[in-house]
């Protein structure tokens, strides 16, 4: 570190890297979690294609999760609708 560097703050990107990795690693681990069926990613994509025909949702808003609860397997599926649409959906 030279004299001038004493006055210049270096960018602290390491914490950004750590946070990004923490999220993506957790997501990828749950996607390949033990006993998770191979078809989940494809199922998620096809469901997304169908939903987008009717509602303009963000791809990240479609969640497909596979879990086990007291002896039986649960396929959980959730779509977060955009604000305006949600209001409309309630009105129907």
């Amino acid at each position: 570190m030279g004299l001038l560097d004493l006055f210049r703050k270096p960018p602290k990107t390491a914490s950004v890297a750590k946070e990004r990795l923490r999220i993506i690693v957790a997501q990828e681990r749950s996607a390949r979690g033990s006993g998770t069926p191979d078809y989940l990613p494809l199922l998620r994509r096809e469901l997304l294609e169908v939903i987008i025909k009717y509602v303009n949702v963000d791809p990240a808003a479609v969640q497909v999760n596979f879990g086990r609860e007291s002896g039986h397997e649960v396929l959980e599926f959730s779509v977060a609708l955009p604000e305006a649409r949600r209001a409309q959906a309630r009105g129907v």
């Binding site: 270096p10 960018p11 602290k12 990107t13 390491a14 914490s15 890297a17 750590k18």
Partner: peptide, 8 residues
């Protein structure tokens, strides 16, 4: 790492 540029 000390300057926050690299993960520890």
């Amino acid at each position: 790492v000390a300057t926050g540029e690299m993960m520890s």
